[in-house]
Amino acid sequence: MEAITFPNGPISMAGNLYFPADFDPKGSYAAIVAIHPGGGVKEQAAGLYASKLAEQGFVALAFDASYQGDSGGEPRHLEDPAARVDDVRAAVDHLQSLDYVDAERIGAAGICAGGGYAINAAMTDHRIKAITMVSGLNIGTSFRRNWFGTDPDSAAVPTLQALAQQRTAEAQGAEPAYLPYVPAEPDENTPPDLVEARDYYLTPRAQHPNAKNKFLFTKSVSRIFTFDAFHMVEDLLTQPVLIVAGSEAGSLWMSTELHSRVRGPKKLVVVDGGTHMDFYDVPKYVDRAVEEATPFFEENLASQS
């Protein structure tokens, strides 16, 4: 693994580049961009998937989102879906600049919100030839409709009203407000997946000093609530997509929705017993996702020579 930086306009992006064990810098490799969940950093799930895909013969790049982790950008702790999608494009730019990467053989693998961002990026960047989404989350839809998707989009309005009041306060000198990605103190109403998310992000299980479990309220929510990672997916996503999710994940509805809407080559794998968070680091489930992703990428990123 090599720690790298690469440009995304004025922002310097921080990434970890993973190589196959028999890597030859004079060779020509298929490459994968690994996109981390909302609130995550490259050293967590994205890095784990990148390392495992490298073991299967791919060059793989995990990176911190702009405004987060070791990447640059101000204000800090901004979750901006449009910026997150542009991060993926910048990562493809960098991979295409590497002599040992075949520019026509680049794929994307995203976890949770990173999966939604991967789908959205691929719709408008057809340099991405194949996409794997693991425990996928359409972040805007999830924020509006709740974790289980049972609310109407209009349920977001009270939060937007609170956002307007907070923005006015900040314009008049108040300190910026932040929200947690996962509940620090779950209660009986907290979805089981998010209870487990707390265990992942806020305990030694996967805690990392760059994953602060906070994002800017006004500047992030106003962008997230109007974002739909799957908008126009029926017409713009022509690349093959692999969707992997757990049967016990409260987020499963987003994976099944995407699968129902995609018109191009697609495969949905629902792993019995798996929760949303199991696919972040539990070996049984991560290995199953990689076992599905490896032949999928091998087939769809095959050399044309």
Rank of each mutant, 00 (worst) to 15 (best):
A30I: 00
F19D: 03
S142G: 04
T294Q: 08
S260T: 12
A211Y: 10
K26P: 01
I35Q: 06
L160K: 08
P10M: 03
L194V: 01
E298M: 02
T124H: 05
L258V: 09
S154F: 08
T238W: 03
P240A: 02
D99N: 06
K26W: 04
R105E: 00
K26D: 09
K212G: 00
L202P: 08
F217E: 12
S251I: 10
R288S: 09
P191C: 14
G149V: 07
Y285V: 03
L268W: 14
F6Q: 04
L53S: 01
A103I: 00
G47I: 03
I32M: 06
S66C: 04
V195F: 02
P186H: 05
E257I: 10
T275M: 07
P192G: 11
S251T: 15
Q161A: 11
A3I: 05
Q304I: 05
L236R: 15
S154N: 10
D24Q: 09
G264C: 08
A164L: 12
D235Y: 09
G140N: 06
A155K: 12
Y117R: 04
E55D: 10
S255F: 09
A229V: 06
A169E: 14
V271S: 13
P176Q: 15
P192S: 10
G273W: 13
V271T: 14
A118F: 08
Y49K: 03
L268M: 14
E188R: 08
T203L: 11
T294W: 01
F143M: 15
L252M: 14
E175N: 14
Y280P: 00
P192V: 07
F215W: 12
A14Y: 10
P37N: 08
G116T: 11
D102S: 08
L216W: 10
A293K: 03
G72K: 07
A91F: 01
R205A: 13
P204E: 08
D151H: 14
K212N: 05
G173T: 14
F227K: 02
N138D: 15
M232L: 08
M133W: 02
E248L: 15
H276D: 09
D272Q: 15
N16T: 07
Q166L: 13
L163A: 07
R127D: 03
A82H: 05
P265D: 09
S220M: 12
D102V: 01
M13I: 10
D193R: 07
Y67Q: 01
P152K: 13
A118K: 06
S12V: 12
E196C: 07
G9Y: 06
G57L: 06
C112V: 10
A30R: 06
F19G: 03
T132G: 11
W253G: 14
E74Y: 09
R84W: 11
A245T: 14
V233R: 05
L98E: 00
A155P: 04
A83W: 01
Y285H: 12
A60E: 04
F296V: 04
N138F: 13
A90N: 00
